[in-house]
Computed example of a mutant assay.
Amino acid sequence: GIGIGTVHDRGGAIIASEDSDRIDIWMGHGDEGLQRALNLGVKRVTGTIYPSKTTQLADNIYFPKVSLSHLIKNRSLLASNVGLNDRGDNVRKIQESLKKLGYYGKKVTGHYGPSTVNAVYLFQVESKIITGEDDLGAGYFGNQTSLSLSKKIKGLEEKVKEELPKKGLGKGDKGEEVKKLQEILKKLGYFQEETTGFYGLKTTAAVLDFQKDKKVVKKNTDKGAGHFGPGTYSALLGTIIQLEEDIPEEPSKELAKEEDLFARTLALNDQGEDVKSLQEYLKEFGYFKYPHLTKTYGYKTQEAVLAFQKDQKIIKKNTDHGAGVFGPTTQKTLQKLLRERGSILSKNHILISSSIVGVAGN
């Protein structure tokens, strides 16, 4: 419920008008509480403020703008108000969810470190929750971020579920659902035979191998061994989601116009189509390992540029001038390699600028 609490005015929050006064309040303490509140969004309600010495209070306070059913319907499956250096299961679940969508590429640790901050930031930018690193709540897992991530995870799961066969299939069953199961197991390397639509011994053996790999069962005699039940269905769902995450986005074959490609020096936290183009080209050469192309020059892009610069002898160490920055020297080197590889068809499609925007780079 909404409950009852104490409001401490920090000064300057009460705004007077002709017919009423406005007071801005939030749950929490100080700037940290304000930051969490801003992530939750603004709710405007009308009520009565009683002085602290008032002896008679209203029995009920009505909040006409707050719908409990709306809050229940839109509640997040993930915790919110989680930030840097927090630890625990809530952080672990956030990391797992971001990993499913391809934003988090590190090991799931349960520690909200810089890698998690960067993953949350990338998700927030692409989800249009924030526009840049200077926005309040950037990299912080607030309520809006939690709701948006839960919604996307649910959408991904629903999409994958449409591809899966129904639960409860077992030996002797036949039909399109069995054939669908065989096709999926074949793609995963468990079923080597022709897809017949008949759940026989070979399908049972394939399901059993999958169950053991995913620790659904340990032995052939365990309950449900070789049977496509709820536990196996869940394991298959998770496996397919992981595969969807690992499938890289097809690089665009369309070349950018002259004024759009590499027209500026790029560095950490820059955003734009030129960043995405850079990621595409670095992916072609095996440097950009992130599952999805983005428009944000994050740590993954910086790591890719660093690796490229070292291989091309542009820098020796990460502390060298221009390390991790996509500047004129790095641009010209990439241009040369792309020409040799045939990715760029004409000089007219390339604009390499030696002008430096905000940061010096090689």
Rank of each mutant, 00 (worst) to 15 (best):
I350Q: 10
H292A: 05
V91Y: 01
Q192C: 03
K174L: 13
G113S: 09
H111M: 09
D89C: 06
S20Q: 06
S346I: 00
Q95M: 09
V66M: 10
F285R: 04
V117S: 14
P328I: 11
P251I: 14
G110A: 09
I184L: 12
I344D: 05
I241R: 03
D9W: 12
V305K: 00
T195N: 11
E193R: 08
L101F: 07
S234Y: 04
G224H: 04
D134S: 15
W26H: 15
A263K: 01
F228R: 00
L169Q: 05
S80V: 06
K159Q: 06
E258F: 11
K174C: 11
Q144P: 01
I72Y: 13
A205V: 08
D320N: 04
G110T: 06
A360S: 13
K179N: 05
K332E: 14
D59L: 10
V325D: 07
E280N: 06
Y121A: 15
G231P: 03
A360M: 13
I129Y: 03
K310Q: 10
K180A: 00
K180I: 02
G324D: 10
D274T: 08
L101Y: 01
A58N: 13
T296C: 03
D213N: 09
K65F: 11
D209S: 12
E158D: 01
I356G: 09
H349K: 15
D86V: 06
R22Y: 12
P291L: 04
I94H: 02
A79L: 06
R264L: 09
A225I: 01
D89G: 03
K257D: 15
D222H: 00
S67L: 10
G1R: 11
E244V: 05
D270C: 07
G47L: 11
L181V: 04
T46K: 10
F210G: 05
E244N: 14
A205Y: 03
G33A: 07
S234I: 12
F63N: 14
S355E: 12
L236N: 05
E183K: 08
H321S: 13
H111R: 13
Y112S: 00
L243S: 07
A205M: 10
Y112I: 03
H29C: 13
L337I: 09
T116V: 07
D270P: 01
G5Q: 11
A263T: 13
R10L: 13
F191D: 07
L345Q: 14
G238F: 00
I2S: 14
K100A: 12
K289S: 11
G358K: 12
E194A: 15
G170A: 04
G226T: 09
G11F: 06
V82E: 05
Y62Q: 10
S80A: 05
S69Y: 05
T145D: 04
K161Y: 01
F123C: 08
T232H: 01
F262E: 08
V359P: 01
R75Y: 06
E249C: 02
S354M: 06
V216H: 02
T296E: 09
G324K: 00
D222A: 07
H292W: 04
A13S: 15
Y112V: 02
I14V: 15
K107A: 14
I352V: 10
Q335K: 15
P251H: 07
D274F: 01
N90M: 07
A13N: 14
W26Y: 15
K215V: 02
K53N: 14
Q271M: 12
